[in-house]
Nucleic acid binder design. Structure first.
Length: 705
DNA sequence: TTAGAGCCTG
DNA sequence: CAGGCTCTAA
């Protein structure tokens, strides 16, 4: 099998009309040549080929041909058959020195009906192809070269010509044809996938636009925007507008759609307007140093097949990221539209929600203490005022009286309260944010001060928020919707109204999937790859764990105390797992457990020491007002921007009782006395909310809705 | 042999 | 929180 890039070789089909947004003329592929004028487009974002099958073919094809990313290779002299028309002419006429416009003119001339030129071109092309074939035959068998064997869609004419020229033997010819067929099949398959993805994206855009496009359209008209001819794709318009201002950190995204826009202009220029190509270089000129090239995507002459597996992986990651960028841009745009529209038109429902949100939130909710801790409330029904002074040092202190024999309380509590075994799992739709802190942003959650190890487009942030908001507005776990909302609106801009209708549209499939899979714990591959890459690609994969990951792990501890490594992989999609990283994550949870059990034991001992209230039905309770709860919350949820799920409180309470019972029963003299408790606790893991599947730190989103 | 839990220590 | 260690189960 050759490279996937072969799948994109089918060009010069008019199919791209269905995706006018991204349409490009095949001619633009020539822009990858080395001697083009300043008007030639800069390297393309990876997603652009994805969004445009034809251009994709060209650029992917080009991408795969260079043997190495940065090296100058002679492959250029091998005419790519996909561009054989242009290249052929270029080679024959020395057209590589021609400026692009010149090429355009020539092409136009030939198209416009100079059969002479055209047939001459064909002859040159044929000659070129023969040369290529001969050259390739010498190279057969070499892996790296195999990649350059570009078998593409030929016109019948070309094939005939090739058949005539390649008289090296029928056998070889047959083999070639077989190969060609196989590749075509693959190509078709991949193309289908590609189009499916693209279709999804387009659908997304359309939905977005349908929701907010009308208004935007009006605004555009008022401004005398570029929509006069009505040909501008709405989505393109939406994306291209403000491309430079709202995504400063995204080196890629801004151009993804602006390209589409510019290309439209080019198309129109080819269609008769002798409008010049935009002179300004596109803003994709990323430096080609280091891995940047993957993102900069200088897909010049094709390196795909000659890149090693890890590079392909990188490329895939970059693809994912870029795709996420695209989606992010859509959503970002929507947000802006929404925000704008919010000022002008405030639907009653939105207003109502807004006011209610404001009521909950208050004018400055940022540091409003959510939990009313009362100092003396160490444990409801257990704690006493004397604990307050002890509280702080106790957090770090380890229990010293392990072998303490306790006061001879005969109180044996039911280990599991009746409601416990069937504790409903409560949904927790937090907001992920794998981004540097941007606390000035209205609805950005707090995040550890350490930025992720690599820059992420800011839009991811928005995207993640939006998706999470959307998730949170949907019943991920139907059964638990009626339970108390354990998210409070906090630390988010109250004036930012919810986006349920739009996001329900945007995210419907994701939410559905998420809802279904929320009940499956620890499984990988819940979401199908396409969507995962679309939604989770934001963070891409990174080696090593960031403070954000630590925070996320701590929040995950609220749900699972004993996550399997598969679970970890599922919920840290932005982490490139290796043995070390997995061990570290497991170690983290081990440490979390250690802390947890230490606290449980400590407070159980304290309760045992001080005695429970005499009332028979008073059991050891762990209230949210208790000191123990505060300590746990402080440890696992330091910034307190995530409401501790009830389930965790219940599990903690159970653990506390278990410790208490063991201590009361004097079982703690057994060196292994904790093991039975561990056994119980490890069975009480809950499914981790779907929102944790997204990269970044999950945040409380009920507070935002 | 390896992965993971738990304990201890810094 | 990480590292080192032991122990255990697969």
């Amino acid at each position: 099998m050759d490279s996937p890039s072969d799948l994109f070789q089918q060009q010069q089909q008019p199919s791209h009309t269905a995706f006018d947004l991204y349409s490009r003329s095949p001619l633009e592929s020539t822009s990858t040549g080395p001697t083009y004028p300043a008007s030639s487009p800069a390297p393309y974002p990876i997603v652009s080929p994805l969004l445009h099958p034809n251009s994709a073919s060209q650029r992917w094809g080009g991408y795969r041909q260079r043997q190495c990313l940065f090296s100058e290779l002679p492959v250029r002299e091998e005419a790519r058959e996909e561009d054989v028309e242009v290249l052929g002419r270029r080679a024959a006429d020395g057209a590589s020195q021609f400026p692009l416009t010149s090429l355009v003119e020539r092409r136009r001339a030939s198209v416009s009906g100079s059969p002479c030129d055209w047939s001459q071109d064909i002859v040159r092309v044929k000659r070129l192809r023969v040369d290529n074939i001969l050259r390739r035959d010498g190279d057969l068998g070499r892996d790296g070269i195999r990649g350059r064997r570009r078998i593409t869609t030929h016109s019948t004419q070309e094939e005939k010509a090739e058949g005539g020229a390649g008289e090296g033997g029928e056998e070889e010819e047959g083999r070639r044809k077989e190969n060609r067929e196989g590749r075509r099949r693959q190509r078709r398959e991949l193309k289908l996938q590609l189009e499916e993805t693209r279709g999804r994206l387009m659908e997304l855009q359309r939905k977005v636009w349908r929701a907010y496009g009308e208004q935007q359209l009006e605004e555009e008209k008022e401004r005398g925007g570029p929509d006069e001819d009505g040909t501008m794709d709405e989505g393109a318009e939406m994306f291209s507008e403000g491309e430079g201002d709202d995504c400063p950190s995204s080196a890629l995204s801004p151009s993804v759609f602006s390209l589409g826009r510019k290309h439209e202009k080019r198309d129109s220029s080819q269609n008769g307007n002798s409008e010049d190509f935009p002179e300004e270089p596109t803003d994709l000129d990323m430096e080609l140093d280091g891995g940047g090239v993957w993102l900069g995507c200088s897909l010049v002459e094709g390196e795909w097949e000659n890149t090693c597996g890890s590079d392909k992986e990188k490329f895939a990651q970059a693809l994912k990221q870029e795709l996420a960028n695209v989606v992010a841009r859509v959503i970002d745009r929507v947000v802006r539209l929404y925000a704008e529209s919010d000022h002008s038109t405030t639907p009653a429902s939105v207003l109502a929600r807004e006011t209610s949100a404001s009521r909950v939130l208050g004018p400055n909710p940022e540091k409003k203490p959510r939990l009313g801790f009362r100092p003396n409330d160490l444990l409801a029904g257990v704690a006493h005022g004397t604990e307050q002074a002890e509280a702080l040092p106790l957090v770090a202190r380890k229990p010293q009286d392990k072998r303490n024999s306790l006061n001879q309380g005969k109180h044996r509590h039911p280990l599991i309260p009746p409601q416990n075994p069937s504790l409903p799992f409560l949904p927790q739709p937090p907001v992920p944010a794998l981004l540097p802190p941007r606390n000035k942003e209205p609805f950005l959650p707090s995040c550890p001060p350490n930025p992720p190890p690599f820059p992420l487009p800011l839009l991811h942030y928005t995207m993640q928020h939006l998706f999470t908001r959307s998730l949170s507005s949907l019943p991920l776990h139907k059964d638990s919707l009626s339970s108390e909302p354990f998210m409070e609106f906090r630390s988010h801009n109250p004036s930012f109204p919810p986006l349920p209708p739009l996001l329900a549209q945007l995210n419907h499939s994701l939410a559905d999937r998420g809802r279904d899979e929320g009940l499956r714990v620890g499984g990988i591959g819940g979401m199908d790859g396409g969507d995962v890459s679309l939604y989770l690609g934001a963070g891409s994969s990174q080696e090593g764990l960031s403070p954000c990951h630590l925070k996320k792990a701590k929040l995950m501890f609220f749900y699972t105390r004993y996550p399997s490594s598969n679970t970890l992989k599922t919920y840290f999609p932005d982490v490139k797992f290796n043995r070390c990283v997995t061990s570290q994550l497991i170690k983290w949870f081990s440490n979390f457990r250690e802390f947890f059990y230490i606290q449980m034991e400590r407070f159980a001992r304290q309760a045992a020491r001080e005695g429970l209230p005499t009332s028979r039905d008073r059991v050891l309770r762990l209230s949210r007002n208790s000191e123990l709860f505060r300590i746990l919350n402080m440890h696992y949820n330091k910034s307190n921007d995530y409401q501790v799920p009830d389930r965790f409180v219940e599990v903690s309470e159970l653990a506390l009782r278990e410790f208490f019972a063991a201590i009361q029963g004097g079982r703690d003299t057994d060196p292994c006395w904790k093991k039975s408790i561990y056994k119980i606790i490890c069975k009480l893991d809950s499914p981790v909310p779907d929102s944790f599947r997204l990269p970044g730190c999950p945040m409380d989103t009920h507070r935002m809705v």
